[in-house]
Amino acid sequence: MIKTLSMMFGEVGIIVNWWDVLVTVVFFSVVLLCWYQAMCSYFTQTSKDGQGPSQKQKAWFLSFFISCLSTPLGVYYLSRALSPEWDASEMLDTDAFSRSVLTLFWVYLIVDMAVGYFEYPGEFGLLSGWVHHIFYALFLGYAYMKGYSISFTHTLIMESSSIFLSGGRLFPRLRSDWAFGCLFLLFRVVYHLYLLLKLYSLPAPRGDLWPPVAGVWVLHLYWFRGWMQGMRRRAQQSKTGEASSSMASPCGDSRDPEGEPVKREKSA
């Protein structure tokens, strides 16, 4: 097994206890599935017709859970990253807590794909759903095996914008297009660039993490551009008296440029 993984990811950075990993994966899977079922029950009980949540609502249950959990943890790691004494090489290290958090996010991606295939296929887009999740899961697996899990925890604050995106879809009072856009710009563009430059400054081979991080940063720029276009379009519609019922998504609309349904944006 180790030999196979070494061929996939290069030199393995840590010794993995696969039994512990399996137990952790099963535990987090149960937690996420219980949360999903609890949200389905809540929306069924609170709906006026008793029909239960729509596919569009179901598509945001897991994302809302992850963003609410990630944001407070992200604040802690953000404060460390912005400290004058912070050593960027810390990102290329690992500890038990960061491995657990990374594993939770990896499990979330897998569960989201599995549940989405059966429960909300119409809301799970090709680019923002399948391609994004598969790439992200492989990237997290790479970071785990190389012993770079702390680098992931420094990106948790990027999920703060998703609270308003996913929460706004589920609870109208949480909707705030401008809060989403400002947090997206601040953390997924500006702060992401800060981390990218820090990674780039590290010597190789320990600095080999920056190319995929740079690719995700470009994707975030693309999504933010779409959000700005969506806000501009909504402003024009409001002037002409046209109502818009959908929240501004990262791609500026409920569909991406290829015409696939846009489910959500993600962190690096």
Rank of each mutant, 00 (worst) to 15 (best):
M1P: 00
L5F: 11
L5I: 00
S6L: 04
G10T: 01
G13H: 02
W19L: 13
W19C: 00
D20K: 09
D20H: 08
T24S: 14
V25D: 00
V25A: 09
F28D: 01
S29R: 02
S29T: 13
V31M: 11
L32C: 05
L33I: 14
L33S: 03
W35S: 03
W35E: 06
Y36C: 04
Y36G: 00
F43P: 03
T44P: 01
T44W: 11
Q45K: 13
Q45I: 09
T46P: 03
K48Y: 07
D49Q: 12
Q55N: 12
Q57A: 11
W60G: 06
W60R: 13
F61L: 09
L62G: 07
S63H: 09
S67A: 15
S67K: 00
L73P: 06
G74H: 03
G74A: 12
Y77A: 02
Y77D: 00
L78N: 05
L78M: 12
P84Y: 04
P84S: 09
P84D: 07
S89T: 15
L92H: 08
L92D: 01
S98K: 03
V101W: 06
V101S: 02
L102V: 01
L102Q: 00
L104E: 04
Y108H: 14
Y108N: 02
Y108Q: 01
D112Q: 09
E119Q: 12
L127Q: 11
S128K: 01
W130H: 15
W130T: 13
H132G: 03
F135H: 07
Y136W: 13
L140E: 06
L140S: 04
A143N: 09
M145D: 02
M145H: 03
G147V: 03
Y148P: 03
H154T: 13
M158F: 05
M158Y: 05
S160C: 15
F164K: 11
S166T: 13
L174I: 05
L174S: 01
V189C: 15
V189P: 05
V190C: 14
Y191T: 07
H192Q: 14
L195H: 12
K198I: 06
S201V: 07
S201Y: 06
A204N: 10
A204V: 08
L209K: 04
W210E: 00
P211S: 05
G215Q: 08
V216E: 02
V216Y: 13
W217Y: 09
H220K: 11
Y222T: 12
G226T: 03
Q229H: 08
Q229Y: 02
G230Y: 06
M231E: 11
M231T: 00
E242A: 11
S244L: 10
S249M: 15
P250D: 05
D253N: 12
S254Q: 12
E258V: 15
E260S: 15
E260R: 08
P261C: 10
R264M: 12
E265C: 14
K266H: 14
K266R: 10
